[in-house]
């Protein structure tokens, strides 16, 4: 036994002593999974001689749980816009003033005064996109630009529709379909949403996140999806088209923010400035297949992407970022969701 113990102690010593000190500094990024271009990271590492570590989460809530507990050790996280207001209020973020940075001039003007960070004192756009529907047009030939595919599923698609289990996105889509204002706290509105979802669910095959996998394997013929994912699906299976529902649709934007207790504050600021460069922003988009918020980045995009219908919405389309609903409404949403998934 004592041999084991000795081995264990030696082992812990090895771990404690390990750690690379090759670069001038470090940068710890915590981002959504499979969302960060390795090329961009490599370029940043080379340019500033910084060692970057990258970890991934799969929901804002998972990230928040970790950040709120404190002592996470990360420098940069990439929350969706509607989460940032609360993070600022909770004092989790550092006021890095990106609006003073060199590359700020490249930001598209419509993204400067966003509701979560007016004037951009804390955040820099990472990627933004829309929440619509991806449809396999081999299976469904009708008009695809309606939420009716999901909430009044046509016979061809019955039992073949997927809905991503993202509570807010689903309820927002239902609200658009029913022409109800988002975050409505009226009881009859909430009841309508509830009834619609319960009725619609019978025709759904699943409520899965892995849409790319399942759409290209033809397990699903239509799915509520994000535009970047839809593009990846189309590139693998050309019959998949991305729909812009006429009832209305929400956009989302994920933003780079720096945590207040970031161990590598200066490197984090460098990174913020770095991704506002059009060429670098294009690198991010080329990987994640979403649009970024930087002027002039489109000319650096790969050919299959620049004119893609997924990131070039129809002319009459207006970007709209829905804010977080008040706690009371969020709670009711939670109950509707529980009831839906029971």
């Amino acid at each position: 036994m004592s041999h084991f113990l000795k081995a264990a102690l030696v082992g812990f010593g090895v771990i404690a002593g390990a750690g690379s000190a090759l670069a001038d500094g470090e940068l710890h990024i915590y981002n959504w999974g499979n969302y960060t271009s390795p090329d961009a990271i490599a370029k940043f590492e080379k340019q500033y001689n910084v060692k970057v570590t990258l970890d991934s989460y799969d929901s804002n809530d998972q990230m928040l749980a970790k950040i709120k507990a404190g002592g996470s050790g990360y420098d940069i996280v990439v929350p969706s816009g509607y989460v940032i207001g609360q993070m600022i209020e909770d004092g989790l973020l550092a006021k890095t003033e990106p609006n003073q940075m060199e590359n700020f001039k490249n930001m598209r003007p419509e993204f400067v005064d966003v509701f979560w960070d007016k004037g951009r004192h804390y955040s820099v756009p990472w990627q933004w996109g829309t929440t619509g529907i991806a449809v396999n047009t081999d299976v469904y030939k009708g008009d695809i630009n309606t939420w009716g595919l999901v909430f009044d599923t046509p016979p061809e698609l019955k039992g073949k529709v997927n809905v991503v289990p993202e509570m807010i996105d689903v309820i927002n889509a239902a609200s658009f379909y029913l022409n109800i204002p988002l975050c409505s706290d009226k009881k009859e509105d909430l009841k309508k949403i509830n009834d619609l979802l319960v009725k619609a669910k019978k025709d759904w095959r699943a409520m899965e996140y892995s849409t790319i996998e399942n759409m290209t394997a033809k397990n699903f013929s239509a799915t509520m999806d994000w535009n970047g994912a839809a593009m990846r699906e189309r590139l693998a299976l050309p019959s998949i088209k991305y729909a812009y529902p006429k009832e209305g649709m929400a956009s989302f934007m994920d933003n780079v923010v720096v945590l207040k207790n970031a161990p590598n504050m200066e490197n984090a600021k460098l990174f913020m400035n770095f991704i506002m460069d059009p060429q670098n922003a294009a690198l991010l988009s080329a990987f994640a297949r979403y649009d970024n918020g930087i002027k002039g980045s489109h000319e650096f995009l790969p050919k299959d992407m620049a004119g893609a219908p997924e990131i070039n919405p129809p002319a009459d389309f207006k970007t709209y970022f829905p804010p977080a609903c008040p706690q009371k409404v969020a709670e009711t949403y939670g109950k509707i969701w529980n009831n839906l998934l029971k």
């Binding site: 999974g33 499979n34 969302y35 970890d55 991934s56 799969d58 996140y209 892995s210 790319i212 996998e213 290209t216 994912a229 990846r232």
Partner: peptide, 12 residues
């Protein structure tokens, strides 16, 4: 496994 989870979500 953490890497895997991310990969399954967004295409293996």
């Amino acid at each position: 496994p953490l890497y895997m989870i991310g990969a399954i979500r967004r295409g293996v």
